Simulated scan of single mutants.
Amino acid sequence: MAAPRRLVEVDTIYMEPGVEAYERGREVLARYPDAWRIPVDSHWKIPELHGNAGNVDDWVRIKRTTLVLGVKKAMTIRPNGRSADFIAPSTSNGCAMACAYCYVPRRKGYANPITVFVNIDQIGRAIARHAGKLGPKTMPDQIDPVAWVYDIGENGDLSVDALISENVRDLVGVFRDLPNAKGSFATKYVNRDLLDYDPAGRTRIRFSLMPETVARVVDVRTSPMEDRIAAVDDFVRAGYEVHLNFSPVIVYEGWEADYRRLFEAVDARLSPAARDQIKAEVIFLTHNRDLHEVNMRWHPKAEDLLWRPDLQQAKLSESGQWNLRYKSRDKQLYLARFQEILGEMMPYCGVRYAF
């Protein structure tokens, strides 16, 4: 399958040692036979990409044309307790899209094109072993009433990754065969090839939504909001559990009215089957001074929405970075108002997680 030209058009591949020893590595290389191949010692240490401030001027081209192939070393599965029970080992890192609020550039440097890990079989076995040791989930919670949920897309967008390799199909297959677990990932891209993956209800896809007027500014190179909303019913029919990911919620003059219109648009498109299983998570914007400075060099218009010191306060994150979040007392009011409007417009849509 050919990837959409405007989103992914790989002409340069950085590859760690050993990539060609894996079937998935050979498959991806064969998909891009004319790409320039550059050996590197580590997918984390590529001076031309990571920490190179000059890449800000070429941000989108790098995302469209550059791919990194690596071998996942650590098979760590971390507890989460928010959107999922656990964070699974990543099968990718980085993204071909360029959302202005994305946290990955803060960790990996100025350019963060997709890194695909080729040892997918080892990752799948690690997940299966972990779930097998857990046994049944005996206590229902806000994450899921009966299944252990693994976030499989923490560091990228799997709908886009599926344009490059069969890793996502393989992950869906892993969870199809696990009676006590589900995979889960958020996406801003509608890839209808996933409709043929036969998830059998064991993969939860969370379509990220925000008002279209804001998305046009901050959701760079993503699927239009109308397409994401229209996809919900199709993915439910294909056997996915489909939830909504209202993230990030950005506060600006008129945001409440815009979300009311968004909820109205969603409500008008959902079938009874989709309504019966829909739930949402709500995550308000977290920003960062370093990312603000990066954005000011390539997309300053986005910072009119994201950088609001009058509304935000600094807070030390778990990773040791000073992030900006809406002032605590005000954020509680914003969150209450958001849930009030959602409850009015879509009373059938419960909120699993709000932050």
Rank of each mutant, 00 (worst) to 15 (best):
L285Q: 06
A30T: 14
W307T: 08
G132T: 01
R297C: 02
E318S: 09
M210V: 13
A162Q: 11
S223F: 10
L171E: 00
D304I: 01
S92F: 07
I278K: 03
R260D: 13
N93T: 14
T203V: 13
L244K: 06
R24N: 14
S223H: 15
K63D: 00
R289A: 14
C99M: 04
P89Y: 09
A265T: 12
V220C: 03
I114W: 00
N295G: 11
L67F: 03
P309M: 08
F246K: 01
I250Y: 12
A88T: 01
V172N: 08
N167H: 10
I62M: 02
A354N: 08
A231Y: 13
W44I: 06
T65W: 02
L134R: 08
A162F: 07
G124N: 04
P33K: 03
S90P: 12
T213P: 06
S271L: 05
S208E: 08
P140C: 09
A314K: 13
V190F: 05
P105V: 10
K331T: 14
W307C: 12
Q277E: 06
F338A: 01
R192L: 15
G254T: 13
A111P: 02
V71N: 00
N155E: 11
I123R: 03
R202H: 10
S319P: 00
M296W: 08
C102K: 07
T91F: 04
G153V: 03
V19M: 01
I62K: 05
D58M: 02
V351I: 12
L69V: 08
G94E: 05
N245R: 12
N112I: 11
G94Q: 05
C99L: 05
R237M: 10
P199H: 02
D11K: 00
Q332D: 08
I13T: 04
Q122L: 12
I250D: 11
A100L: 15
G201N: 07
N323F: 03
M75S: 04
R107P: 00
Y22F: 15
S247R: 15
Q122H: 12
T213S: 11
N288E: 07
Y110V: 09
Y334E: 00
G156L: 00
S42D: 04
W44M: 14
V56F: 06
E256V: 15
D219M: 01
E303Y: 06
K315A: 10
L342T: 05
R308I: 05
N119W: 04
G51I: 09
L316I: 15
V116C: 13
E23V: 14
K315P: 02
A200Y: 01
L29R: 09
K137E: 02
V118D: 00
E154L: 11
A98I: 01
S328D: 09
A231E: 04
P199A: 01
E253V: 11
R202M: 04
T138Y: 12
G25M: 02
V19R: 01
K279R: 14
R106T: 14
W255K: 12
L335D: 14
E154C: 15
D196A: 11
F235L: 08
G70F: 03
Y110H: 15
A2E: 09
W59A: 07
P199V: 05
V220K: 00
A147K: 15
A238D: 07
D219Q: 12
E48I: 04
Q277H: 01
